[in-house]
Design a protein around this nucleic acid. Sequence first.
DNA 1: ATAAACCCTAAACTATACTTTAGGGCAAGG
DNA 2: CCTTGCCCTAAAGTATAGTTTAGGGTTTAT
Lengths: 145, 145
Amino acid sequence: MAYSIQTVSEKTGLAISTLRFYDKAGLLPFVARDSSGYRAFTDGDLALLHTIVCLKNTGMKIADIRRYIELVMAGPTTAKDRSALLAAHREKVVAKQQEIARSLAEIDYKLQMYASPEAEEKVAQEWAMASADKEKNGLPNPFTA
Amino acid sequence: MAYSIQTVSEKTGLAISTLRFYDKAGLLPFVARDSSGYRAFTDGDLALLHTIVCLKNTGMKIADIRRYIELVMAGPTTAKDRSALLAAHREKVVAKQQEIARSLAEIDYKLQMYASPEAEEKVAQEWAMASADKEKNGLPNPFTA
DNA sequence: ATAAACCCTAAACTATACTTTAGGGCAAGG
DNA sequence: CCTTGCCCTAAAGTATAGTTTAGGGTTTAT
């Protein structure tokens, strides 16, 4: 039994319009049509769609996902290319994760400051320094609360 | 000494056009102008800009960053609101990081499969199953290499 | 045989974040 | 004076990823 687009939408959490958009974008060349022209998703299609979602979740662009799918469609001989593509993507994702972690650490530092007992003084101090910074340069002070 | 927009661009890695865009979007209300109408960034401004970049790096939308900056501009009394805003953002970022990690783990699983000695068979097997899946449902088989 | 619930495409529209272009001022050196 | 290098704004353009709309078949139960 094949699945309708609505069923697939429910199973994957992707909007029906998104599934059609992906199809038009060349991400779903493997999805067949029934006698009425309706998309008929098999379980194998769902597996591939799941991979597409993983790539999307990790920030891969549609155009690159299409490239991966093209390799899959071209058969087992492209296994090495697929592997290379995924490995390159993996490295980019890891780098991005690290960058986000660094920024998050800075946000955590600020949070911790706001949570400390001396938060009030510290914030007031920051305020004073920013103001002084403006005055020092003969610039109008926008910190006017 | 205040910094020109070009200098700030070099220090932050943000394009000049991006800095102007951020200013127009209300992210840089603290940046003063000199007698010629040129933007004059102080060190304090750079610190705030750095925070903006952290928020941007972690995926916060411009509109939300503006909200944070508005709180900063409103003075030390808004410290609790800022803290709440950052804490909420932090949770979203952590959740997103975990989701990415899960998807990455699946990509890693595929990579590991491609790297195994039995990769060739496994890929051929996947291919056969996807094909069978189509035939079983009386659908055209798009896997035609 | 008709209404309700699905499915389809093409094309226009939206959102987000920038970048580019066009037109023009200011400041320093030759 | 005038060229060169910065700076400015406003507005249009680009890129990416969808979503919505308009118009139209299909399937199923009544």
